[in-house]
């Protein structure tokens, strides 16, 4: 008998290997169009992985925003600029060293992390217990919704402020462009 936990671990590992392959493709490919499409594939695979990791709300948002809207934005930017990346002039060593040192530091910090998927992790034992208090406090069975809109409503207000500011910035940049074009 194969239990559910083993299947979940196996699917997680397979999806992570696929994500790794797509990431290598994004790093190596020279055409920007291909890179954008690969990034969409990467986001969709990531959304699938989020479903396996029981983060269904995040998975839906990632599929809609990461694989959908951001791909459209990238394609729009490619239409207004170039689709071909200039060939590399020389082999640079510095970025590789920076990346490897970062990876080394993160791997070093990894040794203290609790094991993946175990219920004894500090994240499940300490802090506010939203799972127990959500129904009595708010009456919403979806705990992510109750935390997002009720317990952490100010976070969401800050988020909308950031989106609003970014929208103003984009409008200001594009309006200036139109004005110059008219002149």
């Amino acid at each position: 008998m194969i239990d559910a936990a083993m299947i979940e671990t196996a699917v997680t590992i397979i999806l992570l290997l696929l994500l790794g392959a797509v990431a290598i493709g994004i790093v190596r490919v020279r055409g920007l169009f291909a890179a954008v499409v690969l990034l969409g594939v990467y986001s969709l695979l990531m959304a699938t992985l989020f479903i396996v990791l029981d983060a269904v709300d995040v998975a839906m948002t990632e599929a809609a925003v990461g694989a959908g809207v951001s791909t459209v934005f990238f394609l729009g930017a490619l239409w207004l600029t170039d689709t071909v990346e200039a060939p590399a002039k020389r082999r640079q060593l510095m970025p590789l060293i920076v990346a490897l040192v970062t990876a080394g530091a993160l791997l070093w910090g990894l040794s203290d992390l609790p094991q993946f998927g175990s219920p004894d992790q500090p994240i499940h034992r300490q802090g506010a217990d939203y799972l127990a208090s959500s129904l009595p406090d708010t009456g919403i069975p979806n705990v992510v919704t109750s935390v997002l809109a009720s317990y952490r409503g100010f976070d969401t207000l800050g988020e909308t402020t950031v989106v609003f500011t970014a929208g103003i910035g984009i409008l200001a940049l594009l309006r200036r462009r139109r004005g110059e074009g008219g002149n």
């Binding site: 239990d3 559910a4 936990a5 979940e8 671990t9 990791l53 029981d54 983060a55 269904v56 993946f116 998927g117 175990s118 219920p119 994240i123 499940h124 799972l131 959500s134 129904l135 069975p141 979806n142 705990v143 992510v144």
Partner: peptide
């Protein structure tokens, strides 16, 4: 956040 054998946080 994942617990193996668990489900999504919808009570």
């Amino acid at each position: 956040g994942k617990v193996l054998g668990g489900t999504a946080p919808i009570l």
